[in-house]
Write a protein that binds this DNA or RNA. Structure first.
Length: 873
DNA sequence: TGGGTCTACTGCGTA
DNA sequence: AGTAGACCCA
């Protein structure tokens, strides 16, 4: 990783060249002879440049405002930078790092910078390379998870783990937990594997290990959790695997148990900088605390964040970390960045107005000198389709007029499920778009299968991966065979993969695996041979992409896909080809990379990493994503959709003031992404679980001052209807009409969602003055009760929806007529393809799809409710 | 014993 | 929608 040693002269040349490229104003180049020579970058080795030449360190603070400048040059003692949205925080962070190096206060190797996403890390690295040249390579700039994995691989011996450990994603974890529940006899109706994982994840983020937890059980349910936790951890251990939360917790445990290792990293990282500090959880907080150290030898810590943008409480982030930084680090200096360089004043005022409704926040008001700008544009749609239609009209208008490229525009929503309606309309309008997140590439079945093969190659003990591929593709190994191998593994305290090594091998110290039919035995031995050959090649240095190809070919996986007549399998082949090119590209960028490196890279990618690079867009595509993914980004035009109580804020947050505050921060993040044009839209009726639900406007809409909004449409058709019969429409008693919900335009029962605010409480005109963390037990009980009530309502609504769906399916089935009773082998006639034979049927009701073979020439999947099909005669 | 197929169920919260 | 479980057949 460390670059070849180069002469000071060469280093300077590169630096000057890089700076010339990076800095707008051309600065006089320093004469080579008067170079600020730094002996290996040792502290104190820095000499000021001769007069008349540009001083690199000074150039780093050029053009910064006084607060930014102070943050860049701050020296001595921990530093807290409270950076409002769009206040130039990334610039401050990179320039601070560069400044530390240029002034000789830090050697590049002493820097540890933690970013929130891999993409942010990559961009920061690139910027530092252009500021400092290749020495930037010596810095650690990465996410918490990447940095910890790097430490864990280096220190695996102290952990009694092999360095080839696998990282389990949530699907792997779920598989493993299912196994735990089965084997430990945990009734999955009492506690679902998913809920158990949730609890365990929380515990890990709080650094509570199975032993700690076993000592503090509260009730019967905890006993189950404790058993699951213990069983889950021991299986991870024997599979030589870690789950996502383990990565941080294990690193903390490692450092706490090994002072010598801790000291090593403390000496190494003299300067630690953490971005998005408001989104750190307890484990990450402790990790930083340990790495920084205490006393006179403590490293220098800089944290940057904004409590108003803390949106990850659901994965353990605690706002407390940033709010009590000054108490945690009494010597800390705080700098507040409030000047915003991103948005117009109207956008900022709207965002400020919303966030000011959160109780207990440290006052902060973003401002800009860029002028008021346009008003925020509001639109009330009748349905999510109407919302999408409006959006597309606006999109097309601004694109046609040349005002915006597609890539200038982003559409945000609260939850991934909302993207459907938008996507459909975008496809119909032929607007190019990129959907970030959703069903992710690495979660697809074929990709998970292929990666499981690679995981087994890299880590033979990976039980989850091994069991996944044991009979994939089908090779005639069923539950019986799997059980026999698993029993052997359990009896001898070895992994599933280890037991496979004993199959058909009476010479092994444990004897062969009993209970297998001769056929199964032979199949397993053949399977094992394929794996062993691939493993040998991989250990010889074969490229991951080649290993992948070999496995997919020799196991018959590819063949099975190719021979399939399921059209989905064609796409699967394409996806595997894409995985191949990802692997190949990874190897090109990192020629030394092993299979394990590739798997680690894959395990740590996140949604935000698939965002297009800034420079890679021409006219580009409209970007669709959740608000969570949008954090840290900005776009000239932003649409914030689905602003309804129950959508955004999300239904599950309504009864809980903590969660509601977080939703409001989420809204704040959404609004502050916009540079010039901000749209806010809501739909009066939105379909959830297949049934339409009527939803009142988001309370966040009310919190935006009216004079800032240009309402293109202020009321839905239903609102207007009601308004003519009721005078109590506006203000706090909105939706007080008792007949609400039975209006004729609503096509289906409106669940049990009652009129009025979904939380039942009066509209809060003023922010609550009650301190957020001093809720009385009665308050909490009330919230709990309300939560239960909402839950019951939701369940009732779901029940209604289910009934409605069943009825609809029934009707649709009838409307399919004779086609409803199609059987495989029947002949049908297609209007353009002519007669064909039904070779497959899938789905039910209106989703019923027939696979029809036309003359053996082509096979089509046809939706019976849509396709122009008739029966012969 | 394994595989195929059908049905029913749960799922939509955010990485 | 995708998967687990039941059932039946080879």
């Amino acid at each position: 990783m460390t670059p070849e040693p180069i002469s000071a002269l060469e280093r300077l040349r590169q630096k000057v060249a890089a700076q010339a490229a990076a800095q707008k104003p051309a600065t006089p180049t320093a004469p080579a002879g008067g170079a600020p020579a730094r002996a290996g970058g040792a502290p104190g080795g820095y000499a000021p440049a001769p007069s008349g030449s540009a001083d690199a360190a000074d150039r780093l603070i050029e053009g910064l405002n006084p607060q930014q400048k102070a943050a860049v040059i701050h020296s001595g003692g921990p530093l807290l930078v409270i950076a409002g949205a769009g206040s130039g925080k990334t610039r401050v962070l990179t320039h601070r790092i560069a400044h530390l190096v240029e002034t000789g206060r830090a050697r590049p190797g002493e820097i540890l910078a933690i970013t929130f996403t891999n993409k942010a890390a990559k961009e920061m690295k690139e910027r530092l390379q252009s500021l400092l040249g290749p020495v930037a390579h010596r810095m650690w700039i990465s996410t918490f998870h990447s940095a910890c994995v790097r430490i864990l691989r280096a220190e695996h011996e102290a952990l009694d783990m092999r360095s080839t450990f696998t990282i389990y994603d949530s699907a792997d974890s779920l598989r493993l937990m299912n196994q735990v529940c089965r084997e430990e006899g945990i009734d999955s109706r009492v506690a679902t594997p998913k809920s158990l994982l949730r609890r365990i994840s929380d515990l890990k983020n709080e650094l509570v290990d199975p032993d700690d937890f076993a000592r503090s059980l509260n009730d019967e349910a905890d006993v189950t959790v404790a058993a699951a936790y213990r069983g889950y951890q021991s299986r991870l251990k024997s599979a030589n695997a870690l789950d996502f939360d383990d990565i941080i917790m294990t690193t903390v445990n490692l450092l706490q148990a090994h002072p010598a290792i801790t000291e090593h990293y403390q000496r190494r990282f003299r300067h630690i900088l953490v971005d998005e500090y408001q989104d750190t959880n307890h484990a990450q907080y402790v990790l930083i605390k340990i790495l920084t150290g205490t006393g006179p030898d403590a490293g220098e810590l800089t944290v940057v964040g904004d409590a108003d943008q803390s949106i990850y409480a659901f994965r353990g982030a605690t706002i407390r970390n940033i709010e009590s930084f000054e108490e945690d680090y009494p010597a800390a200096t705080s700098i507040l960045l409030e000047q915003n360089y991103r948005s117009t004043q109207n956008i900022l005022t709207a965002a400020n107005a919303v966030i000011s409704n959160n109780p207990n926040r440290r006052a902060k008001r973003l401002w800009t000198d860029q002028g008021e700008g346009d008003k925020v544009i509001g639109y009330v749609a009748d349905s999510e389709h109407d919302e999408a239609r409006f959006l597309i009209e606006e999109l097309e208008a601004m694109h046609k007029s040349g005002k915006r490229k597609w890539s200038d525009i982003a559409v945000f929503y609260r939850a991934n499920a909302q993207s459907r309606a938008l996507e459909e309309m975008l496809i119909r309008a032929g607007i190019p778009y990129k959907l970030i997140g959703g069903t992710r590439f690495y979660e697809r079945k074929e990709i998970k299968d292929a990666l499981a093969y690679l995981q087994v190659i890299a880590n033979p003990d990976d039980t989850v991966a091994m069991r996944r591929i044991f009979n994939t593709p089908r090779r005639g190994l069923g539950a019986k065979a799997e059980d026999a191998v698993a029993a052997h593994a359990q009896m001898h305290g070895m992994s599933f993969g280890g037991a496979i090594a004993d199959v058909g091998n009476p010479e092994s110290p444990r004897g062969a695996v009993p209970g297998l039919t001769p056929r199964a035995e032979k199949t397993i031995v053949d399977f094992r041979t394929v794996l062993e050959e691939a493993r040998a090649a991989s250990e010889e240095g074969a490229a991951p992409a080649d290993t992948l190809d070999e496995l997919m070919a020799k196991t018959g996986y590819m063949e099975e896909l190719r021979n399939s007549d399921d059209p989905q399998d064609e796409a699967r082949v394409d996806n595997l080809a894409e995985l191949h090119s990802v692997a190949a590209e990874f190897r090109t960028t990192n020629p030394e990379a092993t299979l394990g490196d590739f798997l680690e890279h894959v395990a740590l990618v996140s949604d935000s990493d698939q965002l297009p690079d800034e420079d890679a867009q021409n006219d580009g595509e409209v970007t669709l994503m959740t608000v969570h993914t949008a954090k840290g980004l900005e776009f000239p035009t932003v649409f914030v959709t689905g602003l309804e109580d129950g959508t955004f804020p999300h239904m599950r947050s309504l009864a809980d003031p903590f969660e509601l505050s977080e939703e409001r921060r989420l809204a704040y993040v959404a609004l502050t992404r916009a540079r010039e044009t901000l749209y806010i839209t809501r739909a009066a009726v939105r379909s959830q679980w297949g049934a339409p639900q009527e939803l009142p406007p988001s309370r966040f809409l009310d919190e935006i001052p009216d004079e800032l909004v240009d309402w293109r449409r202020e009321h839905s058709a239903g609102d207007v209807l009601r308004r003519s019969t009721s005078s109590s429409y506006s203000g706090g008693s909105r939706y007080s009409d008792p007949d609400f919900g039975s209006s004729s335009y609503a096509p289906a029962p409106i669940g049990k969602v009652k009129p009025g605010r979904l939380d039942g409480g009066p509209k809060r005109k003023k922010p609550s003055t009650r301190p957020q963390d001093s809720l009385t037990p009665e308050d909490l009980a009330k919230f709990e009760a309300r939560k239960a009530e909402l839950e019951a309502e939701r369940a009732a609504a779901a029940e209604e929806a289910k009934k409605a769906r069943a009825e609809r399916a029934q009707k649709e089935e009838e409307s399919l007529g004779a086609l409803a009773s199609l059987k495989i082998g029947d002949t049908v006639i297609h209007r353009s393809f002519g007669p064909g034979t039904v070779v497959g049927l899938e789905g039910t009701g209106s989703n019923r799809v027939a696979k029809v073979d036309f003359d053996g020439k082509k096979t089509k999947r046809l939706m019976l409710s849509m396709a122009p099909l008739t029966l012969p005669e």
